[in-house]
Simulated scan of single mutants.
Amino acid sequence: MRIAIFSDTYAPEVNGVARTLKRYTAYLEKVGIDYKLFVPESSTPIPTVPQVERFSSIPFVLYPECRMALPNPLYINETLKAFKPTMIHVTTPFNLGLFGAHYGKKNNIPMIASYHTNFDDYLEYYHLQFMQKWIWKYMSWFHRPFEKVYVPSHTTKEKLVNYNVHPNIDIWGRGVNHLEFNPENKSNRIKEKYQIKEKNILLYVGRLSPEKDIRIVLETFFSLPEDIKKNTHLMIVGDGPLYKSLLSSKSNQITFTGFLEGKELAEVYASSDIFLFPSPTETFGNVVLEAQASGLPVIGANAGGVKNLIKDGQTGFLCEPKNADEFVRKTITLLAQDNFRQTFGKQAREFALEQTWERIFERLILSYKDTLLSKERFSA
C-alpha cells in the first residue's frame, strides 16, 4: 500500500486536523506503509522531510490557520508518477484536494476522503448564511467520485447522510494519549505560576474564535452565584482571532494563558476541576477527550461530535447550544458537590481509556484494505 495524502493543514499547525494527520503519518511510518503528503507551506520554519511536499499558500478566509495551497501541477504529477500510489486520501476539498481527486480519477486509483470541518456551521458566525446551500452542493459534487468518505463521529455521519454527500460513509474516530493526559499530572505548580488563589478551576481549551461560542464560557463564569464564584478561577487556554478582544474581560479570577502544549498543557488539564466547552460546531472535539483522559467532567454543547463523547449525567453534562443559563446551572451543580464532580471525572477517565490511537488506526487500515479489494473486484 502506497498512500498519497492531500491536505490543506499539517503539523506544525496546531488545529485538530493537523494534529490528527501528524499522528496518522507517524502510524504509517511505524507499520511500514509508504506515504507521500502534499500540504501548504508552514508559517513556522521546519526541517525538510522527504515524504512531505509543501507548496506556496495563502490564508483561508474563515480559518487563517488553515492555508489554501497554490499547487504546482507539473511537479505534483512527476512526484506521483515516481511514487506510484495505490490509494489517494484527500482530507480537504480545496486546491490540493481538487488536484488529488483529479489525479485519482484520471489514473483510476482508488480514492478515499476524510471530512474534518463543519464549514457550514461557521457561516452563521461570519454572517455568510446565504452560502450554506452552495457549500452542500459543492460538498456533494466534490465527494461523489470517492470510494468512501470517513467522518470522526456518528453525529457528523448523520449530517452528511442527511445532505446526500456520499452513499458510503464510515467512522474514523479519534484517540488520546492516556499517558500524556493523565490525572497524575495534577500539580500545585499551575496555581503558583498563574497566581491562582481560588479553590476550583474552570477550564476552557481551544481556538479563541466566534464559532467556538467562547462568549458562553465567560457568561457562565460571570453568572455564577457569588458564593461559588469567589472560590472559582477561570482559565482560558488557546489563541485565535478573538484573543486580544477577550483580554478586556481579564480579572484577578480569569487567566488567559495563550497557546500551551506538551507537559504544561497536560498539567493545566489535570490541575483543573471542570472542563467547559460550549462549541456547537465540532465534528469531533479532541480537547474534550484530552480533558476526559485527564479526569475532568465536561460540560459541553449537545451538538456536533461533542455529544458523542459526553455521557450526560455520567461523565459530564450536555447543554442546549448557546443556552448560557443551562451551562450555568450545570456548572453550579458540579462546583457545589465535590463527590459528584469526582465521580464524573473518574468515569470520564474510564471512557477515555477505551479510545486508543493504536486501535483506531488499525481499524482504518483494515477499512482501506477492504476498499482496495472492493475496487479490484468491481474493476474485474
Rank of each mutant, 00 (worst) to 15 (best):
P152G: 02
F222G: 03
G104H: 06
Q195H: 08
Y35R: 13
T220S: 03
Y10P: 11
F351N: 03
V39I: 14
F119W: 14
E13F: 07
L265Y: 04
L203W: 00
N323I: 04
S379G: 15
E41C: 10
N200H: 06
E198H: 01
R207T: 00
L128Q: 08
N168R: 12
E326P: 08
P321I: 01
Y115V: 00
R341G: 03
A270I: 08
V49T: 12
G305F: 04
V149T: 00
P152F: 01
T79Q: 13
N182M: 04
A11P: 15
R2A: 10
G305V: 03
A4W: 09
Y27N: 14
F146N: 00
G304W: 03
L242V: 09
L242Y: 15
F361I: 01
D239V: 04
K322V: 05
R207M: 01
L318Y: 12
K133M: 08
T257E: 13
S367G: 08
D213S: 10
L224T: 07
R377N: 13
E192L: 00
P93K: 04
A324H: 11
P59I: 06
A303Q: 06
R144T: 07
G97W: 01
V328Q: 10
D370A: 13
W172S: 04
Q51E: 15
K148L: 00
N302Q: 13
D8W: 09
L242Q: 14
P85V: 02
G295H: 05
D170Y: 14
Q129M: 09
S43W: 12
P73V: 04
S57M: 03
T356Q: 14
L373R: 12
T331R: 05
N308V: 06
H116E: 11
N339Y: 09
F256V: 07
D121P: 01
N162L: 09
I332R: 14
Q314V: 09
S379W: 14
R67W: 05
A336W: 04
Q342R: 09
P280W: 09
K311T: 06
N108I: 06
E211H: 02
N252I: 07
L21K: 07
H116V: 01
G100I: 00
K186I: 02
S379A: 13
V237C: 12
P110E: 05
F256C: 07
H166V: 00
F221N: 05
P280L: 02
I196P: 02
N168F: 07
P241H: 10
W136Y: 11
G313K: 13
Q342H: 12
I228M: 14
P59E: 10
I196F: 01
L335G: 03
